[in-house]
Amino acid sequence: AEDTGVRVELAEENDGRKASIALRLWVEDPRKLKGKYKDGGVIEFTFDLEKEVPEGVAQEMVESGLFHESDAKIVGKSIRDRVALIKWRRERTVPS
């Protein structure tokens, strides 16, 4: 596994239909979070599988003061990897 210090997982049951899903981002390395968020470690947010771009959400987190600009790439990639997996699973699931 890559040691990025950031992990993304689904925060809700994935019924395979909704475009908007809840994701939970775990920050394993607290040094990545800024200022008053240093005591945090879990960030929950929703992501639209059809309309949104992982890197865009990572940039919003940076603009919101959660992450340093230098971590935007890692955060974006972590979200992208998870989203790709979720989409892959959906494509393989044949609706009954």
Binding site: W26, V27, G40, G41, V42, E44, F45, E60, M61, S64
Partner: peptide
């Protein structure tokens, strides 16, 4: 709890919480 909400200008909400004890390791 120490949960904090941040709302970006796009309207997206980020909910920041501490890591639960059970998920902490090496501490």
């Amino acid at each position: 709890s120490a949960t904090t909400q941040v709302v970006h200008s796009t309207g997206r909400r980020f909910i920041v919480s501490p890591v639960p004890e059970s998920r902490l390791k090496d501490q």
